[in-house]
Amino acid sequence: MNFLRHDRALSIAVVLLAVLLVFVVVGPWFSPYACDEIDFAGDWSAPPTLAGAHWFGTDSLGRDLFVRGLCGGRLSLLVGLASTLVSLLIGVLYGAVAGYVGGRLDTLMMRGVDVLYALPFMFFVIVLMVLFGRHLLLMFVAIGAVNWLDMARVVRGQTLALRRRDFVAAAQLSGLRDRDIILRHIVPNLASTVVVYAALTLPQVILIESFLSFLGLGVQEPATSWGALVNDGAREMETAPWSLLFPATLLTATLLLLNVIGERLRLRFARPATSEVR
């Protein structure tokens, strides 16, 4: 954690993101309104006021935009985290097995990845959403399952280098199975690469979710996400620009912070082997 102190950009980004996270997670509990609560006493599409009840105004159905922005953030971040985890799990295992076993299996597995790369990515997710319905959990899995390709490539490159290290040979000479060598000796050594890569994947995934929701393929009313809010806001951006501005700002700020953190971590931790495969 020492490196945090030496990297101003990183530490500022981490603090800001932490504040934002606390707001998003805890905020809705302290708000007088629920996420899907319609304020019948107020106006529809009321403009933001500091004096009034709705700091960021209300949407076209009279729901408080402040609390909806936070609730949307909960969902966007949740989808982001879950999908990143899914892609991490698949990518690390796939890449580690390909890199460790090597030879023909490696060639086969990595050509498989190449083929998947060639598929139009968004199209793939959209097909999955249409096929399996717009289930939230499925969205996690769908995004994660498509997004593991980069992770698999990076991890494979790292594993190829690790495979030649003496401690792997020592583990084999100790009678360990390949499975245990991968899980107990290779994977922990991948940690720094994987953390960096996960930090860079997270904003990507949040963006994909927002994009899907913007297209109307994502979350369903009354639940919402930043993408869905931006979509709602865009429809009435001429009459009520705040309903677009507020969620869009939150989304952009989060993505920016995550990208800064990921990039700084990459500079700090990524080993030469990582850049070699990219």
Partner: peptide
């Protein structure tokens, strides 16, 4: 049992 030449690289640095 087997002991290698280079103790610097034969132990897993993360365990």
């Amino acid at each position: 049992g087997f002991v290698f030449q280079d103790p610097a690289t034969s132990l897993n640095p993360y365990l």
